[in-house]
Design a protein around this nucleic acid. Structure first.
Length: 655
DNA sequence: GAGCACTGC
């Protein structure tokens, strides 16, 4: 193959081994004519004609090169998964095919995405259908909805094991807890079966927080006369393909994260799956031979209750990062409120994003991106964290802030999988951390990483201290990447520095907390007067409490700090702030002042963000209550500020 | 006093 014979092609999606295979079939070395790029690894060269990359990487590329001029064919793979990034790319592609109609071809591939809908989105482009190679799957419904899908799955699995011919069983559950319960119940029941009455059994859990060596166990096929039970989350729905599965048991539920723009709060809920998801799960039974799918719900539930398709992520997420990204592209013909999404997010959600960005100085009061915002968009971080880095650079604590943001990027994968009996480890994973972690979780995360640095990044150290090796390595990679990106603007050293002297670290921690306060200007909370509950300080106040896993300390009176910033506000059993950090009132006041001036219609570039068909009396951002908060903000804030000052002075005089 | 599904810029 000679250079330039092939059109420069870029393939976005989950390509797994595709790039290796294509390189192999073309008889070329991977990294030359056929290359790939993922976050921490770019294996392409000048010779590269076909480049595989992730959606995030393609978005990064279009940041510096919005017309993607180096490519003549762009393939968006797995578009049906509707990830946030894929949806942004779909919108950008629509614009690109318009302005590059003569020299660009875009191909969108999807297993289940509604072809007609995508075709009409792309000005009625042609739809090609490639038949799949799946075997037929018989779908069997339960006669009624079960009260406990755990019990029903257990019963169904054993029934299959006893009565049905060989073939592995894949059971879809919602989370780690259920999976662990299910695995131990299955083990118990299988052991109690009469010896020789049926095949042997291997029972395997499968979920995201399982260490990789445990995950790969599902790739080894069952030994002869042995049936595997794979108890999985929806990781087995799309991300991992398990061969040998003939029977699928589908609970009909999934654990899903969603964002409420009216409250600024996430929740993690167990919800019904969509028809597309149910069909995807069933399809997992027909990969190697005809299979069976047992749905633990009646067919009426499937037909009448299930949504046709899963709500795309873009309608379930906070859009601050997305809006900032689009604004930073600075495309003259793109207005964020009218940006052409395949499924547009609500105006409320866009309005929320604009307000958040304004509070952290990423856009000005008329909605234009600021210099700060432009620099933030260059960093592969959520806006709060990129803002923190920029502020930390000004305040001379960039090296510490780099560590904290990197740790938070990996936060959910830092903790080990829970083991029975050793559950209370989180509070003090390291007994000999220096003072200062009482200021909050961010400081503790910093101290943990500094300890690991002192231990020369020894994986064994992670294990001894109950931290996931994978998560810590990810942190290290992120930190390195952020260092490279910050190099140009950095004011001070970037390497991990542990302040050995108590006094120095105290000052560094205070600067860091100040930077965090600026970065999380959209995620502030104020403690209630008589107890340790908090309310969020935004355009709409929410009651929340510090998550019990937090290391934030109380003062000698048993009070938590008056003001905190939080990394995440999420309702599980109750509304919780996760990863909080104490901040000072004097840092908070300017942000509250800014909140007073906030006018969301102006932020959206003058165009009213009010729904068109609604009477004008209706509040711009939804509920009347919310409107009241918006329009009366100055009064509320002034009194709030006054009250806070009084409290502060009262406390001071007491001491 | 609670306990997070999935990715991976």
């Amino acid at each position: 193959m000679k250079e330039n014979e092939l059109p420069k092609t870029v393939v976005q999606g989950k390509w797994f081994f595709a790039h290796r295979r294509v390189a192999h079939e073309l008889g070329v070395r991977l990294g030359e004519e056929v290359g790939y790029a993922i976050r921490f690894e770019d294996r392409t060269s000048e010779k590269t004609c076909i480049k595989y990359l992730t959606d995030g990487c393609l978005l990064r590329e279009s940041l510096s090169n919005p017309e993607l001029k180096q490519y003549s064919v762009i393939i968006l793979d797995e578009a049906h998964e509707r990830s946030l990034n894929t949806d942004i790319l779909l919108g950008l592609m629509k614009r690109l095919v318009r302005i590059r109609s003569s020299n660009l071809k875009v191909l969108i591939t999807s297993a289940t995405l509604d072809g007609a809908k995508v075709s009409s989105f792309f000005s009625n482009c042609p739809v090609l259908t490639v038949p799949g190679k799946l075997f037929p799957v018989e779908v069997l419904y339960s006669s009624e909805s079960s009260t406990s899908y755990l019990e029903s799955s257990l019963k169904r699995a054993l029934d299959i094991h006893i009565r049905e011919p060989p073939g592995d069983i894949l059971i879809f559950m919602t989370g780690q807890d259920d999976i662990e319960k299910m695995v131990s119940k299955l083990e118990e029941k299988v052991l109690s079966l009469e010896e020789g009455s049926c095949m042997d059994a291997i029972i395997l859990p499968l979920h995201g927080s399982l260490p990789p060596e445990m995950q790969v166990r599902v790739f080894s096929p069952a030994p002869p006369n042995c049936r595997r039970f794979i108890v999985a989350t929806n990781i087995a729905e799309t991300s991992l393909t398990v061969d040998g599965v003939v029977y699928v048991i589908d609970s009909g539920y999934v654990k899903q994260r969603q964002y409420n723009p009216a409250t600024g709060m996430y929740s993690l809920d167990i919800v019904q799956i969509s028809k597309v998801q149910a069909d995807q799960r069933a399809g997992r039974a027909g990969r190697t031979c005809p299979g069976k799918c047992y749905r633990l719900y009646p067919s009426t539930v499937y037909h009448e209750d299930f949504l046709d398709v899963t709500i795309p992520e873009i309608q379930r997420s906070s859009l601050a990062g997305t809006v900032l990204y689009l604004k930073s592209l600075d495309l003259p013909d793109i207005d964020i409120l009218t940006f052409d999404f395949l499924d547009p997010p609500s105006r409320e959600s866009l309005g929320d994003a604009l307000k958040q960005l304004y509070l952290i100085d990423a856009i000005d009061e008329s909605g234009l991106i600021t210099d700060v915002g432009q620099r933030m968009a260059e960093l592969p971080l959520e806006p709060s964290l990129s803002r923190t880095l920029i502020e930390a650079n000004e305040l001379g604590c960039l090296s510490q802030a780099l560590t904290v943001t990197a740790m938070l990027s990996a936060e959910t994968s830092l903790l080990p999988t829970r083991r029975k009996g050793t559950e209370k480890k989180r509070k003090h994973p390291l007994s000999d951390l220096p003072d200062g972690s009482g200021w909050g979780d961010h400081i503790q995360l910093l101290q943990i990483y500094e300890k690991w640095d002192q231990a020369n990044y020894d994986p064994q150290w992670c294990i001894e201290n109950d931290l996931q090796v994978r998560g810590m390595k990810f942190t290290k990679d992120v930190r390195k990447q952020l260092c490279q990106l910050m190099q140009k603007m950095a004011e001070g050293p970037l390497d991990v520095q542990s302040n050995r002297k108590q006094k120095e670290s105290g000052q560094a921690y205070r600067r860091l907390r100040k930077a965090l306060c600026t970065g999380y200007g959209n995620q502030l909370a104020e403690r209630m007067i008589h107890h340790n509950g908090y309310r969020t300080l935004g355009y709409k106040s929410q009651l929340a409490q510090v998550h019990p896993s937090s290391v934030l300390e109380m003062d000698e009176d048993g009070c938590l700090p008056d003001y905190v910033v939080y990394h995440e506000l999420i309702t599980t059993s109750r509304p919780f702030m996760r990863n909080v950090c104490a901040v000072e009132m004097s840092w908070v006041m300017p942000i509250l002042k800014k909140l007073e001036k906030l006018n969301v219609n102006k932020l959206s570039g003058g165009s009213s963000i009010t729904e068109e068909n609604e009477p004008r009396v209706v509040e711009p951002l939804g509920s009347p209550k919310n409107d009241a908060v918006v329009s009366k903000a100055p009064d509320n804030l002034d009194s709030r500020i006054q009250a806070a000052r009084d409290r502060f002075l009262a406390r001071k005089s007491k001491k």
